[in-house]
Design a protein around this nucleic acid. Structure first.
Lengths: 173, 173
DNA sequence: TCTCCAGTTGATACCCGATAACAACTGAGG
DNA sequence: CCTCAGTTGTTATCGGGTATCAACTGGAGA
């Protein structure tokens, strides 16, 4: 019986996970090796994506980037995200939120995993499971569809929120 | 070994699937039973969602609704969608598209299924698999997260497009 | 170390899906 | 047929994301 593991990143709560060194400083090197120009703005954004253990959306990325590059503009954030996506170095998540969806970005990892998004507090958890990989293989096998991306997203209520059920579920933003 | 079935709805190509009577005229009855006021606009939108076998987005829903209710407004479409979502009668899909995502709506079915979206022509296929349900159960079992929604979305290239690869993949809109 | 220019940036304006506010309208219970 | 709470269309607005373009700069070559 396959059992999955729940772990790692708790997001949107402003709490740091306990370290989470994802890929070290590989992205900058990788980009340089590919002949991509490294500007101070790009460096800031990339370092943040690598260093911050939370899942970030564009707005938060902008906020954090401005701590290092005060003049950086929204447009540059989006352009850098786009660059990294097209270079295949980050993945875009599209997770449920309180009424609506939000786009988050994470460094592309080797591991297949899916995301559990708490619809109450917005926390994001990662979940890996043999069953997930199996399903992915199964769809691939069936042949009449060439898979490029598989995204599995789960929305629900996290442990903390269901424990504190009713007790003012205020998100610490 | 689990093998899934690929089938049913081909969308966005303007082709009709071969019948697809989903729930008959249950939505209107259900709403009336719940004390929801049925206006001519709501009736139009609801009937369209039930009768059209394709997956519809808000814009297309508006277009189709205007064939019956020429004065109906975007806002009413969104309000009706919102109503049906909150009543738990339809599901919102968030499928990959050519660069970006689109929101589609479908009558909530009993069957768990996921969606395969062709990134080239936009066609949408439904896919059911024991492995999918198994995965869902597995996540539920693990206990520390109360699941409300599970969405599995696959992006890739459909058979037709990969066959016609390179041959002007124009979408018939 | 200096020059130079293709590639990048910030500013501005804009696009588009979606929502808020509000007066006019209407479904359906009495 | 009355009535009014709930719904509608209109208009304005919001927010994420993108196009444009002149000014700027990383980094390859001299």
């Amino acid at each position: 019986m396959t059992n999955g593991s729940l772990l790692v990143t708790e997001s949107q709560l402003g709490r740091k996970a306990q370290a989470g060194p994802i890929h070290r400083r590989s992205l900058l090197k990788e980009l340089r090796a590919r002949g991509v120009r490294i500007t101070s703005q790009r460096r800031a954004v990339i370092e943040i994506i690598q260093e911050v253990p939370r899942h970030l959306d564009a707005a938060e990325l902008l906020r954090l980037a401005r701590e290092r590059e005060p003049e950086i503009d929204r447009a540059t954030i989006y352009r850098t995200i786009s660059l990294l996506k097209h270079q295949g170095l980050i993945d875009e998540l599209d997770l449920m939120h309180i009424e609506g969806e939000k786009h988050y970005y994470e460094v592309k990892t080797s591991k297949d995993h899916c995301h559990l998004a708490c619809l109450r507090c917005g926390a994001i958890f990662e979940y890996t499971s043999p069953a997930f990989e199996e399903l992915r293989k199964e769809i691939a096998k069936q042949g009449s569809f060439q898979i490029a991306v598989v995204r599995l997203e789960v929305g629900g209520i996290c442990k903390k929120c269901s424990a504190a059920a009713g007790v003012a579920g205020k998100r610490p933003s």
